[in-house]
Amino acid sequence: MDNNLTKIYNRSLKGPLIFFVVIMLLPFIFQSNNYILSTFIMIGFYSLVTTGLTLLIGYAGQISLGHAAFYGIGAYTSAYFTATLQMPSWIGILVGAIIASLVSLIIGIPVFKLKGHYLALATLGFGVIIFTFFKEWKTITGGLNGFFGIPPLSLFGISFSTDFQFYFLIWIFVFLGIFFARNIVQSRVGRALMSIHGSEIASEAIGININKYKLQIFVLSAVYASIAGSLYAHYVTFINPQLFEMMTSIYFLIMVVIGGIGNIWGGLIGAAIYVFLGELLKDIVPKIIPNASGEFEIVFFGVLLVVILIYMPNGISKAIFHFIKRITSNFKNKPVSAFSKKSTGSDIHD
């Protein structure tokens, strides 16, 4: 009876470990190619944010259009504590996470009394208000001129100043983040979150305090975003308010939707598709339409978003995991009975 749990939860660390090793080997292949390294580093920042958001949107079913604010809170707090106050990096990261969790708690209490459209709009409005703080609180943030001279990250006496070094750091954070989130999903808490998405009334009727869980997961996702923001600030060493605008929140949402709800790897997959597709389009489109400028690539993301929501409402990651399952089961030459296919296929929580 012991192995019954594996029929619903894939707790095995094998897949993630293989993936981790591959990711950790990549920089040795592309050591001299800063473009590839920096592209992967960007995917890392976004993955950290979207993994937290996947818990909120994909599992608990609560939309947020304001997460760029928490990303920005992390970035500005780290910038202020390390550049202005000359404190160690870890203090900036920690204080950023604390501020983000306090802010998300304060805003979350009234916000989660709202549903659907109004929830989306309230989080969006909150994002605009925080953006205004970044823009107008010039003594701390430098306003629209931006915040210059953020020192490179240094932790445990190691300085992460090159892309090569930073790559390892961000991806270790990403994997820890996914590991933590995956464990949550495969537990009582994960089921409570999914039950809120499934039916709020039924989940309250079996004793789940839905407001508490919505709030907890909102705070957790804010902390993920804040840590990603802190690391980002140290990586780019210069930040300005536009980086944390409403559009950034919407991009995060797009990544989560593309990657897929209800799968903990969805955030990472969505972030990767978003970054690669964006780079690809910036490369190809100007060859076809020579005078294309600005963020024309949003046309494609717009179309992708609409098409996915209409035809693949569970996102791309479900399809990818089906594919991997098929390949690995063919590889092992395992006879696939109708029953085992059903119970180990689409429903398992990876």
Binding site: G116, L253, N291, S293, V299, L304, V306, L309, P313
Partner: peptide, 28 residues
């Protein structure tokens, strides 16, 4: 027949398409 949240995100997607097309036609 999708949820309100899905439809909301679809309209965001449409907004992106409109904005992107107008960048391609009229520039920034």
């Amino acid at each position: 027949n999708s949820s309100t949240a899905t439809l909301l995100i679809i309209t965001i997607g449409a907004a992106f398409v409109f904005r992107g097309i107008s960048i391609l036609i009229w520039g920034t």
